[in-house]
Design a protein around this nucleic acid. Structure first.
Lengths: 251, 251
DNA sequence: AAGTGGTCTAGACCACCCC
DNA sequence: GGGTGGTCTAGACCACTTA
């Protein structure tokens, strides 16, 4: 199944285990990802990826947390069954992870990736001083090459140093931030339907005024520190958000 | 702070890192767990607990996932200043409750309220036999008299007998169902942006093709039994959904 | 008995923070 | 520079599964 030895080049930012995770996910997505199919043994994966077993297992464990894989003690690693009908959690997923769940390949066209001082409003959202440097990352997000959404993200520079040196054409911003030591835990979101303006319509190849699902998120770590702010505008007929709401006990 | 060397006996049952986690948590709880206080360096904790650094870090990472600790790169480990927030992130609210929270008055214009046999698709959604009677309740939902959304709801007749005798101009459907003995617990939802068709545009007094936020929900009780299915279409510029997403726990 | 995942170790090197 | 967390390695042993 995994028959190539992906080059886990010693490029700066991404830890080895994040790279290994991405490589494994890619191989699973491309290859026949029939749920239930078995992966090669750990020790062989180590050889193929040229990493140690501890590092490999860190990647595998992360994929278990994302529901991609599951392990069986004396038997091996298996691709998790897609029919996860059990419950419908409102999990925070990156675009890349959502694509993976649907069996598609996520990609990006980077419109902007630069460092600049924060405005007053941005600084307030991140609870930092105005003018503190922020990365601005604007991307057209694609599934199997089809433009689905435009993502405008902001990340404080101290959280993700060197972000402008990363090629986000295929990389996941979530993975990159995670690899730099921060932990995404929770996202507060607002969602509304708006008409597409000219710029957005151009990027998504839709008509001006077409309905667009606009989601504004602030993603925080466990300490409620804001890590990432993003506005994602999905073409209305190309994306569907799903979540679940829970009744609070008092009401 | 941690001044004893707990006996992490090599007895089988609990992995070492789980024992270490428990020991650390106990020490933190007993000792002055003032948020912000620093733990001894990792290498010293290793010596005190008589475990390797890898194992220790596995315990520490687990405690981070639980919100007990946090790390600071060149500085040390700190007890999280975490008074646990009891706020349930994404609560299931009725339109009426949302209105009250915002200090507005919710109302309805009832378009339809009748009993009829379920179709095959409807029966499948409710896990009942096709033809089983359902109430169909269609309403224009309003805030302070302004039309905001059109709500098309379905309720199995056995859950809410006599529903067609209720005046929903001011009554809440949630309250009515709750009052009849069922408990709304959870809702699985999909959300997308669609253009308004002629009928919808007429009800909301908007132009045909205007973006509309379309939310489809199935509301269930604690046993996962479906109680209510609804499609709510909000005028895009008159409503904003808010929710939160949480990262799936690696615990 | 062979193969596989699960746990643990000792040591190395790096990046960051503060003096 | 010294102390600290972050990552990675090679190897060992154990527990579970399958034949």
């Amino acid at each position: 199944m995994i028959d190539v030895a992906p080059v886990l080049a010693a490029e700066y930012p991404e830890p080895l285990w994040v790279q290994a995770k991405a490589a494994l996910r890619a191989q699973i997505a491309e290859g026949e990802a029939r749920p239930g199919s078995r992966l090669p043994p750990e020790r062989e994966l180590c050889r193929m990826l040229a990493i140690s077993r501890v590092t490999l297992r860190r990647a595998l464990t992360a994929l278990v947390d994302e529901g991609v894989l599951q392990s069986a003690h004396g038997r091996g690693w298996y691709v998790a069954g897609a029919p996860e009908r059990k419950d419908w959690p409102n999990t925070l997923e990156s675009f890349t992870e959502t694509a993976q769940r649907m069996g598609l390949v996520a990609g990006s066209r980077v419109l902007r990736c630069e460092l600049g001082p924060s405005t007053f409003d941005e600084a307030e959202a991140f609870q930092i001083a105005p003018g503190t440097p922020l990365y601005r990352l604007d991307r057209v997000r694609m599934l199997d090459g089809v433009p689905i959404a435009v993502d405008e993200s902001l990340v404080p520079a101290d959280i993700a140093p060197g972000l402008d040196g990363v090629d986000f054409t295929t990389r996941s911003l979530y993975d990159t931030i995670t690899g730099l030591g921060s932990r995404l835990a929770q996202a507060d979101s607002t969602i509304e339907a708006r008409p597409a303006d000219a710029a957005l319509a151009g990027h998504l190849a839709i008509a001006v005024g077409t309905p667009v699902l606009e989601m504004r998120q602030i993603v925080r770590d466990e300490t409620q520190r804001p890590l990432l702010s993003s506005v994602i505008r999905y073409a209305g007929d190309r994306y569907r958000l799903r979540t679940s709401f829970v009744r609070s006990p008092g009401a």
